[in-house]
Design a protein around this nucleic acid. Structure first.
Length: 300
DNA sequence: CAAAGTTCCTGCGAGC
DNA sequence: TGCTCGCAGGAACTTT
């Protein structure tokens, strides 16, 4: 599920829930997600206090009072569920009792709860991830610059990115602009949903080749300028939507990061285009093995 | 059949 | 011709 706005929302939730707490132990229910869990994960973090939570691209970086950084990526289906010391008794049930308390759909039937972080104050945070595309890594803060997962990343959309930087990277690109938006070396944090949304808002066809959005002189066209603006707007609005559903940093069951949005094109195949006066019908095509939603009428 | 992410592999064309 | 390099596109991972 998570693109930048969802990860940002989870970051804010974890900042409230975790910062200041000391890790008692980490319990693993299997040996790997996408990659093996780090060796001695629990031993290395035991007794260390969490001092801050950062986000880089779609990665969560949890800083501890030692020099260790705990990296967490949610993949497609990862989530954290938080139990305070009072509600943790709900989680500390056997599997059949859990089913009756949480129902089948929560994931707390036991099967996909792969990692438990237990804190000294008695609270527990559970990482659930049915598809197991998530990643957990542990590294020394001094090694952060050379982490292979992080060093390949492009600019953060809000801090380091503008139309000229985008133009420099699009200049010789023959790939479709939608594929380019999904490339984390181009700009980080944009996933399939917000790529579709931003292209629709900007009125650009997802199949347009990236270099066609750059002038001969290497400057961004008006359309590319608009796209860069719309990416930022779409992400900003989604972060705001996430924040507004996160008053208590988690819903009643303690779930973080899952909130519903209203999309303009994503998931709206065969429905009318919502752009004022357009009258088009939303189409779905496949690019790089992923669904792209677009309005053929107002996206050129 | 499709799903919100990322890495890795193969194939192709350019250039030496 | 043959080799290397970089880019582009596709497969793979997994479960519901």
């Amino acid at each position: 599920m998570p693109e930048l706005p969802e990860v940002e929302t989870v970051k804010n939730g974890l900042a409230k829930a975790w910062v200041g707490k000391t890790i008692e132990k980490i319990i693993l229910r299997r040996e790997n997600l996408r990659y093996p869990f780090p060796e001695n994960l629990s031993n290395r973090l035991e007794g260390h206090k969490i001092i801050g939570i950062r986000r880089r691209a779609k990665y969560l970086l949890i800083d501890t009072d030692g020099d260790l950084v705990f990296l967490s990526h949610l993949g497609m289906s990862g989530k954290y569920t938080l139990f305070d010391s009072k509600s943790v008794s709900k989680y500390d049930l056997n599997d059949s009792e859990k089913k009756s308390v949480f129902g089948e759909k929560t994931g707390f039937s036991g099967k996909h709860d792969h990692m438990e972080i237990r804190f000294e104050d008695g609270s527990v945070s559970v990482y659930t991830d049915p598809r197991r595309f998530g990643i957990v890594k542990l590294f020394h803060r001094s090694e952060e610059q050379v982490q292979s997962l992080l060093e390949v990343l492009g600019p953060e959309p809000f801090d380091d990115w503008n139309a000229q930087i985008a133009a420099d990277r699009c200049r010789n690109k023959r790939s479709p602009i939608k594929t380019t938006l999904l490339d984390q070396r181009f700009v980080v944090g944009v996933g399939n949903i917000y790529a579709c949304e931003a292209l629709h808002k900007a009125g650009i066809s997802p199949t347009k080749q990236a270099y066609k959005l750059v002038t001969k002189a290497g400057k961004p066209t008006k359309a590319l300028q608009k796209l860069v603006d719309e990416v930022k707007i779409v992400l900003t609005k989604a972060i705001a939507a996430g924040g507004s559903t996160l008053n208590d940093f988690a819903d009643v069951d303690g779930n973080l990061g899952y909130f519903s949005h209203q999309f303009s094109v994503y998931g709206r195949e065969d429905e009318p285009c919502l752009k004022e006066g357009c009258g088009g019908i939303i189409d779905r095509i496949v690019q790089s093995n992923r669904s792209t939603f677009l309005c053929p009428r107002c996206q050129k």
